[in-house]
Design a protein around this nucleic acid. Structure first.
Length: 731
DNA sequence: ACTTAACGGGAATAA
DNA sequence: CCCGTTAAGT
């Protein structure tokens, strides 16, 4: 610093002018608006390092909120590296949910909650909601637990309590009562759901000035990544914390807001400007990730969204390989193309870890997996059956949860008869009655019944045996580590022989349990409560290890914040992206567009877009051919390359013939059909192979071709403009 | 009284 | 395809 050129400051190495300005600015409310690949997280990390190293702010006064646990871990590593000391250790760094969970554990008594409260995940929430709907005598068809949960979740994200739920219709009335009852059941279980973690923290800050003051002093400086994806509850937490010291540093990109269905609201950016009028704003417009071609394609897609600030993103990586757009016959052929193409890229020197395949819905991964297996390409799947949502893992965790929090009836009901020990529905119902009489939980009712010797009849023996085990575990909890406790539970319940039933899936399930055990063994000193909290709040992307060299399969949502040299985006069809459930509302379609934008901007060097002519699993059957995604129309031809794929694949006037809007929407392009096929003609189909035309007729503006294929395929009727098929020369 | 095997309906994204 | 429900089996 003494006479040193500020550009040589070790904490500013490798940053451009815009980034440096953002990192070194004075303490106060700051908004960094940044495009993809512009070094958002880097700026955030360097800003924290700047505050610690240059401004001499003690680490325990800093709270940094990241979007995933993985991002938090990485930031801590980078900070340790940048600062060369341990000061990053004392920093509070984590996701909103993890941070709130910790605050609430500390303040549990103020909420009338045990500090060993359970965190209820989606499955648990559904179990509670079903119980509520059942108890209230509502018709599950009319009042779908899923829909009710959504309503409750939205209310919580907006900080609306059950008693304040706005009632305009009879349906609202029901929702309000369901909401109230749902909270009642949660509370009896000593549980909080994901939304409660945020809502209760926000409301605690609102209602307890002393608590707010404490955390305000504690977290004098607050920094937030992915601010565009905060919801109202999160915004209120930030606003309250920062109101006094006004040191709030947020990084955002409205074009990457993809979680509105979870209550996220990018208008929080405008709220920030209103609530902190002295806000300093910085723009990061240089993209360091993608080639010009990829950036141009992505920009063209996002530019069509209204209500956004236009940005002038640029990169010095001129040119680049064109974006590949490829039509496939169906999801299987699409997957085969992707796998084959990956095989080719691997032979040119890319590593499997350089490649990601992205899709809108988890269900799409199946076909891709099958092809990758067939082509012997190593891959790993993010999401789908999430590790911690697997039955066997949830079972073990449910045991631990009951041991940790005996009021957790949801977990108790889950494991009381797993492995089967003769405690069926009827017995559980009796136990539930007893619990209601005693106004206590299932496990407490069981323990007191056993203690009184009040059990008779056939089931008494199994119930008593279970009660003895449970009591023993609760006692052992004090003495044993989490690993030892898991081992004890597995041994006592005979879970291994129950799981390993000789089937292949049984072996896989047991391996999953061993994997869980290994995770615990990595932190041998962890407290049970901390372990359960960590496990409840991990995201699938958190478990992405950089050391595994495999192709990554993931949803577009999980892809946020990641980057790969090569990205395949699959299923670019109307109904898939944009998703059919989003097509009624323009704002939801706009979000789908942002989702595509997020996906495209993950790619550094190569981007491949694919769509299928047919997609089997789609609800409207195999009769209806797919329509390419409307978003593809916005990508300029100059950045696209449309490979013929197999030789059979060239289709003249392809665009004019097969492009259109969603079925039913206006603006479908009309193209006069030309008869390309006649009876007796030989054809080649990309998927079905060679065949002979039996009949061909113009129908409306399309040509319907009936073909007899070989190799046992048989007769198929195809739409000429859509089928990946072409006439073969006669000879 | 419980368990298991077979069946039919509804399927986004996720901390 | 994963689920919840139902009917038959122990």
């Amino acid at each position: 610093m003494h006479g040193m050129n500020p550009d040589d400051h070790p904490l500013l190495q490798g940053l451009n002018a815009q980034q440096r300005a953002a990192v070194t600015t004075s303490v106060g409310p700051v908004l960094v608006l940044a495009g993809p690949g512009s070094g958002k997280t880097r700026v955030l990390t360097h800003r924290v390092a700047w505050m610690l190293g240059e401004l001499q702010i003690p680490p325990w006064h800093i709270l940094a909120v990241t979007f995933t646990n993985k991002a938090a871990r990485e930031m801590r590593h980078r900070l340790e590296h940048l600062l060369g000391d341990e000061s990053a250790r004392a920093l509070t760094l984590g996701t909103f949910h993890a941070t709130c969970a910790r605050i609430l554990r500390r303040e549990a008594d103020r909420l009338g909650l045990s500090s060993s409260y359970s965190i209820f995940d989606t499955d648990d929430q559904l179990a509670v909601m079903k119980q509520v709907v059942g108890e209230m005598g509502l018709d599950e068809k009319r009042y779908r637990p899923h829909a009710l949960l959504n309503a409750v979740s939205s209310a919580k994200n907006e900080l609306i309590r059950a008693t304040d739920y706005p009632i305009r219709t009879y349906h609202d009335e029901i929702v309000a009562r369901v909401y109230e009852q749902y909270q009642e059941v949660l509370r009896r279980n000593g549980g909080l759901d994901f939304d409660d973690l945020l809502m209760e923290t926000a409301m605690l800050f609102q209602s307890e000035p002393s608590v707010l003051t404490y955390y305000r002093e504690r977290f004098e400086h607050v920094l937030v990544d992915e601010f565009q994806d905060t919801n109202m509850a999160q915004y209120v937490i930030l606003r309250l914390l920062a109101r006094e010291h006004r040191s709030l540093y947020v990084v955002a990109d409205e074009d990457q807001s993809i979680y509105s269905w979870r209550g996220a609201d990018y208008r929080n950016i405008s709220r920030l400007r209103q609530d902190f009028p002295e806000l300093q704003e910085f723009l990061l417009e240089q993209n360091y990730r993608s080639t010009q071609v990829i950036l141009d394609g992505a920009q063209a897609v996002i530019a069509r969204n209204a209500d956004r600030t236009p940005k002038r993103l640029f990169t010095t990586r001129r040119g680049g390989t064109p974006i590949v757009l490829r039509e496939a016959y169906d999801e299987r052929e699409e997957a085969d193309y992707v796998a084959k193409e990956i095989g080719r890229l691997l032979r040119t020197g890319y590593a499997p870890g350089d490649i990601a395949i992205m899709y809108r819905t988890n269900a799409q991964s199946r076909a891709l997996e099958e092809s990758l297996i067939r082509y012997n390409i190593p891959y790993r799947l993010i999401g789908a059956t999430r590790f911690y949502a697997r039955k066997e893992i949830k079972d073990v965790l449910a045991y631990l949860r009951v041991i940790q929090n005996p009021d957790d009836d949801v977990s108790f009901s889950r494991i009381v008869n797993v492995p089967p020990r003769g405690i069926g529905r009827r017995t559980l119902a009796l136990l539930s009655e007893e619990a209601q009489r005693e106004r206590s939980s299932l496990s407490r009712a069981l323990l007191s019944l056993t203690a009184q010797g009040g059990l008779t009849g056939r089931t008494s023996r199994s119930l008593t045996a279970f009660a003895v085990m449970l009591q023993n575990w609760i006692r052992l909890r004090e003495e044993l580590s989490v690993v030892q406790l898991i081992d004890q539970v597995l041994a006592d319940t005979g879970y291994e022989s129950y799981t390993r039933d000789g089937s292949e899936q049984g072996e896989a399930r047991w391996e999953n349990i061993l994997a869980l055990r290994a995770v615990v063994a990595e932190s041998p000193l962890i407290q049970l409560s901390d372990f359960l909290e960590d496990v409840a709040l991990v995201a699938d992307v958190d478990m992405l290890s950089d050391e595994v060299d495999a192709v990554t399969l993931l949803t577009l949502h999980s892809a946020k914040g990641l980057e790969y040299p090569i990205v395949f985006l699959t299923g670019l069809e109307e109904g898939v992206l944009p998703h059919s459930r989003s097509m009624e509302s323009p704002s939801q379609v706009a979000e789908e567009r942002r989702l595509l934008y997020v996906g495209m901007t993950r790619a550094k060097e190569r981007l491949v877009l694919t769509y299928a002519f047919r997609r089997g699993w789609r609800a409207y059957g195999d009769g209806e051919p797919s329509v390419p995604s409307r978003f593809l129309e916005d990508i300029p031809d100059e950045v696209l390359s449309r490979p013929a794929g197999s030789a059979s694949f060239s289709r003249p006037r392809w665009k004019a013939q097969s492009w259109g809007r969603a079925p039913g929407s206006s603006g479908r392009k009309r193209a006069k059909a030309v008869q390309r096929y006649r009876a007796g003609q030989r054809v080649h189909h990309a998927y079905y192979g060679d065949g002979i035309v039996i009949e061909s007729a113009l129908e409306g503006r399309d040509e319907m071709v009936t073909v007899l294929f070989g190799n046992g395929v048989g007769v198929k009727t195809l739409v000429s403009s859509m089928a990946p098929m072409e006439p073969l020369p006669d000879h």
